[in-house]
Computed example of a mutant assay.
Amino acid sequence: MGLIDSIKENARKNLKTIVLPESEDERVLKAVEQVINDKTANVILIGEEETIKNDAAKCGANIAGATIVDPKKFANIDVYVNELVELRKAKGLTQAQAQELMTSEPRFFGCMMVRLGDADGLVAGSNSATADVLKAAIQVIKTAPGIKTVSSTFVMETADGKFGDNGLILFGDCAVLPDPTSEQLADIAASTAATAKSVVGLEPRVAMLSFSTMGSASHPLVDKVKNAVQILKERNVDFAFDGEMQADAAIVEAIGKKKAPESKVAGTANVLIFPDLQSGNIGYKLVQRFAGADAHGPIVQGLAKPVNDLSRGCSVEDISNLVAITATQCK
């Protein structure tokens, strides 16, 4: 069974409610039909009911079974508006501005549904910039307790099963933070370890990557990674981690034993934390192209409740898969 099939199977066992705010996108409407048929989540679409139903009919999408919520007719809109005013009062948001956001910006409305428990998670981005999706999520849902950093991970699935756990290995952060600090790297490690457990079902073994292995090189860039490792030690986290180490020492058992013989992670890592966005983004794309790996993601992490961002070039299948992934992130 492939990763996505396994994720969908897990999603069916504990059905969650996922908001899709971009109901104007026919790919979203077609994905709703697929999600309903797959029974991987309950779905909420945001927008004017007649328009959504007409659009679904035009593109041949059967969305029967989905819930449609129109913010302009929503009975509890005052609760949502008041909550947003409270959240953003330090920034001077007025009641009128909050009312406008809640009734005209479906990403903000959808995130408020998640915040207040009317939904479990949200998937957007097929018709929105990543910055707009994350802005709504960070301002409304906020970060998880103990985590100050929103980041992302890709689950890399290789056909030969040589590295990680049967070919599954997580790469973070490859999509959000350009130049994380040591503390942010520690947050990324903690969040990616949590994703490994909740979404992929792996017991994480986290390698903090660098161009140095256990002091083989000296440089401020190496110090950043070393400091992140120290922060994780001070936090007394509940997952295995080690570093700093080079990529081959992290994933190749013979090299790990040679370069870091005392490490419980070296040579067997299934979570790789890159020192910056350049290396992470380059790394996952090289593995995707050279090794023919499937790159599932980016999966957004570090938020108090799950929100995931789609590429604007996504397919119907990409959307339905990300809905299932988001459902497995829900507690």
Rank of each mutant, 00 (worst) to 15 (best):
G2Y: 11
K8D: 02
N14R: 09
K16C: 02
V19N: 01
L20E: 00
E22S: 00
E24G: 01
V28M: 04
Q34A: 13
I36D: 02
D38N: 11
N42P: 05
I44K: 08
G47W: 06
E48S: 02
T51W: 11
I52A: 03
K53V: 14
A57L: 11
I63F: 05
G65N: 11
D70M: 05
F74A: 12
F74R: 14
V81D: 06
N82I: 11
E83V: 04
E83G: 09
L84P: 10
L84Q: 07
L93R: 08
Q95G: 10
A96E: 15
Q97H: 14
Q97T: 05
L101R: 09
M102W: 02
T103S: 12
E105S: 14
P106W: 00
M112H: 01
M112V: 05
V114E: 04
G121Y: 00
V133L: 00
A137G: 06
Q139E: 12
V140A: 02
K142A: 03
K142Y: 06
G146N: 03
G146V: 08
T149E: 09
G161T: 09
K162C: 13
F163A: 15
G164I: 11
G164P: 04
I169Q: 09
L170M: 10
V176Y: 03
D179P: 10
D179A: 13
P180E: 10
P180H: 10
T181I: 06
E183T: 11
T192R: 07
S198R: 15
S198Y: 07
V200M: 07
E203I: 05
E203T: 12
E203K: 06
P204A: 13
R205T: 04
F211Q: 05
T213K: 07
K226Y: 09
Q230L: 11
D238K: 08
F241M: 06
M245G: 14
A249P: 12
V252G: 12
E253P: 02
I255H: 07
P261Q: 00
E262W: 00
A266T: 13
A266Q: 09
G267N: 10
A269S: 09
N270P: 02
V271T: 09
Q278H: 15
Q278M: 12
N281A: 12
K285E: 05
Q288I: 07
Q288H: 00
A291D: 11
A291C: 13
A295K: 04
H296S: 13
P298V: 02
I299Q: 10
I299H: 11
N308I: 08
L310N: 13
G313T: 04
G313A: 04
C314L: 06
E317C: 08
I319S: 05
I319R: 03
A324Q: 07
Q329G: 10
C330A: 12
K331H: 07
